[in-house]
Structures are given as structure tokens and as C-alpha cells.
Design a protein around this nucleic acid. Sequence first.
DNA 1: GCACACATGTAAGTTGTTACATGATTAC
DNA 2: GTAATCATGTAACAACTTACATGTGTGC
Lengths: 179, 179
Amino acid sequence: MSLRHALLGALADDPRTGYALLKHFEQSLAYAWPASHSQIYPELARLQDDGLIEQTETGPRGSKTYAITETGLAEIRRWLRETEPDRRVRSEAALRAFFLWVLEPEEAAGQLERERAYWRGVLDELERIQAEPTGEGRKARAFRIALEGGLATVGARLEWLDSAIAELGSPEWAARAPD
Amino acid sequence: MSLRHALLGALADDPRTGYALLKHFEQSLAYAWPASHSQIYPELARLQDDGLIEQTETGPRGSKTYAITETGLAEIRRWLRETEPDRRVRSEAALRAFFLWVLEPEEAAGQLERERAYWRGVLDELERIQAEPTGEGRKARAFRIALEGGLATVGARLEWLDSAIAELGSPEWAARAPD
DNA sequence: GCACACATGTAAGTTGTTACATGATTAC
DNA sequence: GTAATCATGTAACAACTTACATGTGTGC
């Protein structure tokens, strides 16, 4: 039920429309918990049914603004405090690394170079966000902490890719028989 | 269809029983793609139906040993070469960082300390695996590269947790109103 | 007037989780 | 004998993806 709590957390931050939540997911939360509109809208309806959020406004083009309720705030606090985080991480990119030996070294290195280009782009984007001016409250500080987590992870991945590409280019790989 | 290719990759490495694959997932692949027995066994049956793997042996206690076929090997190569990796990463632990401000600073710091303890354990385990002697072929080298990826990621996460915990303990957090 | 971004929703299918279910061998 | 581990499977449910579907305001 992470999506439920992700939405609750985003609305605890500030009342937002469904569409604004969708954009928020695309821009920042996507790095931790990607979600599409077809998941978000029905879940918002369920959260409202359960009294954890309420619709406070109807805007132009049928947009609906939701705000978290007291019950909802209690629920996200309970989730953070009382439930054990599911620490499993799913990453197809990491999975592929295990099977690099299936390809010839040059081809494997080529794949990793594409990965590097992609994650460089992500790092640039995160650094761009980091450079933007922010407030000084706890919310802004927490956001910056989360952002630093993203930067650390992506930075480490890039360093790893550099060394992995170098290793694939070393004579040991090329010289040796497939296994 | 990542599970399918994860199984194919593991069997390309070596023929294995379903149970051995399950253990392999728990021990190494889990860091990239967790999977349970209730997903693995039916998927093996489907892979066999599709001719990508074949059962080569029936062992004690009804265990079944599978080996990859030529078709299966071609399929994993095709997957690695021709399909774009899904680079989305899902991590509840990372998600929770965005909502740290919802808790009081001391409580939030406590949560991060639990995270730190958990990831230290994972780092220890990965370092233990790294210290084990391995072969020198491409498979062993690729495995070590993947392992280094895990070590880099977990190491970066731990460094981030150290700095985040320090920041939550700083006077700015305690002094300031919730927002 | 037309393209684009805004804005929300549903439906079908796939993937993943949790629980149910069963039986065989090994170590004590 | 009994507990633990080995070994495989199914079923119900929840979560997620992709495709379908529709309508509104803004800028050119």
C-alpha cells in the first residue's frame, strides 16, 4: 500500500489536485515510487471514501483539489512509525549487470555506456533541482535530504559504471574464452 | 517480463533445480529482483512450454533440474541487446525519506538509525560474499562487477544516512516550528 | 480553427504477494 | 519421532501497466 501513503504524504505537504499529484510523482517521487495517472485517480477516490483525504475545491476543467484530513494525517504518522519499511529494491538495470558475461565484452561495454549516459542525465536533472532556491522550513529541509539521497545513489551508480566499463575494456576480458 | 529473463540468465550460467534458483534469488538476485517460489515455479513451467529451457534431470524429493536451450540462450541475448532496460526503481525506503518532516526530528532520526543498522547488515553480507574466493572466467568477473554495483549503492546509502541523521540532530531542525 | 497541455476516468491484462497445500529426506 | 530443510505446486487477491475514452481551457 505504498502508493496510498505516497499520496497521503504528498497531500500532507500541501493540498493538490490529482493532476498536480501526477506531475509531482513524475518530477520527484518517480525516483522512489513511479506511478501513473491510471493508478493515482482511483486511489484518490478510495482515499476519499475512507475519509483520509477530502475534496476541498473544484477547479476549471473539472480539476479536483484534495486536502489531507486529520484521520489521514494520523494514518501517515502511523505508517511511518509502526510499519516496517519494505526494503526490497527492484531494478532491472541492476539485474542486467549479472548477465553481462552473456554478451561479448565490447557489446557489454556498449550497454553500460548507454546506462552511463542515461544516469548522467538523471544526475544533471537532480543537480538542477538542487540548485533551485527553496524555503527553510522542515518540509523544505526534508525534501533536500531526500534529494541528497537520490544524488548519492545516482552518483555511486555512475562511479560504478565508470569502473565496470574500464574493467570490461581490460585485456583479461577480451583474451579469455567465454568461460 | 524481467523475472523470465532473470531465470533464463541464471540458467544460462549453469543448470539448476527450481529450488536452487529460489535460493540463488534469495542470496544474490534479490538485491536487484526479488522473487518468491510461487512466482518462480509457474514461470519455469512456462519457460519449458515455450522451449526456452528443458528439464534434464529428476532428483531426490522430486526436484527438477533445468538447463537453458539454444532458443533460450538466443532469447536472453536478444533481450539484453534489443530491449531498452526499464530504468524505474521502486524503493519504499527512499519514498519514506520524503515524508520525514511529518514526524518530530528525534523520531525521524530514530527511523533513519534503524535504516542505517539494516543497510550496515547488508553491506557486511555483501563484503562477506566479496571476500569469498571465485573463479577467473567471465562469469565470475561479471558476478564481481554486479557485486561491486551493490556495494557502491549500499555504501552511498549509508553515507547519506550518516549525513541525514546528523542534519536531523542539528539545532535548525529542533528549533524551528513544524512549518 | 487547431494543437497542446490540462484534467479525469475505466477496462483488460500482467505481475507480484500471501496463504493454502502437500510430500520427501536429513539431523538430532 | 520430530523438527528443520528440501522441494514443488495452486489459488485468491492486490498492485501495476497499457490501452481505451472523453472532455476543457490556452496560445497561436
